[in-house]
């Protein structure tokens, strides 16, 4: 943990060298995410609700998903940009250091400019909370914390899969964006609005619903109590991702020098 703190400080110091650039990219991140919000806003100018979810509830959902995604992007950025880590020979360097390679990949990229997106997500989140008349309790706050944790883990899992594929090929990886950026886009609405089949798929195969739809129902007092714990189950998604990663590391062929 101390080492991670050191990594964090190095990234912070690096960013301090380019303050203007950092502020501008934060602003950019904020504005890009603002689009999401506008999309929902105009949508609800025409319809008062979608599949039983009101404007404020959708905003709450969108805020949480965006927050989950931003956290994963900020802290698991090393896996998201793993192709460049390999081609620049940084992974060779990681392997000659006596620490776990997953930990070092996490430490090698910490994308602090994602704070812009996190802020946008928090704004929507707070607005959603204020408007949705949820009766807040301590357990509900804990449920939100679990959602953030589970969501960050699931999205990170996708980055890990992406990185693992980098060991075998560096072509045609764009399709992975369906699962990451795509999920963020579709994730602004509760998964159930896409129909039963999608909901089942997102429950049992790719655990999107476990970090978004079910715990959301709990927050809105329409779901069972155990729904709040489902994000923990979603964390299990990381296991097969890590297995894939281990296989990838064994197949690693370094780039020439």
């Amino acid at each position: 943990m101390k080492l991670y703190g050191k990594f964090f400080m190095i990234h912070l110091k690096s960013i301090m060298q380019y303050k203007t650039s950092f502020l501008l990219s934060c602003l950019g991140q904020f504005l890009v995410s603002f689009n999401l919000f506008l999309g929902i806003y105009f949508m609800f100018r025409r319809f008062s609700q979608v599949e039983g979810f009101t404007y404020s509830e959708v905003l709450l959902c969108c805020g949480i998903t965006l927050l989950e995604f931003s956290l994963a992007e900020a802290f698991a950025r090393g896996f998201d940009t793993f192709g460049s880590i390999v081609s620049r020979g940084e992974f060779d360097r990681i392997l000659v250091r006596p620490r776990n390679e997953i930990f070092q990949v996490l430490g090698s990229r910490i994308e602090l400019s994602r704070i812009g997106r996190v802020l946008q997500a928090i704004v929507m989140f707070i607005y959603g909370i204020r408007a949705s008349h949820i009766h807040w309790t301590l357990t509900k706050a804990a449920a939100v914390a679990l959602m953030l944790l589970g969501g960050a883990v699931v999205f990170s899992g996708f980055f890990v899969i992406y990185a693992s594929i980098c060991f075998f090929t560096i072509e045609g990886l764009e399709f992975m964006n369906i699962f990451t950026d795509g999920a963020r886009e579709y994730g602004k609405y509760p998964v159930s609005i896409y129909g039963k089949k999608v909901l089942q798929l997102c429950t049992f195969v790719i655990p999107y619903a476990l970090i978004q739809y079910y715990p959301l129902l709990y927050l809105l007092d329409t779901g069972e109590a155990y729904y709040a714990l489902l994000p923990l189950a979603a964390c299990l998604f990381m296991l097969p991702c890590l297995v894939l990663w281990k296989i990838g590391v064994r197949h690693y062929v370094s780039s020439g020098s």
């Binding site: 101390k2 080492l3 400080m9 190095i10 110091k13 690096s14 060298q17 380019y18 620490r99």
Partner: peptide, 14 residues
């Protein structure tokens, strides 16, 4: 982007 000494300090930790 950081002074060499910062890199050394990180290596100390690693």
């Amino acid at each position: 982007d950081v002074p060499v000494l910062d890199s050394f300090e990180l290596l100390k930790e690693i």
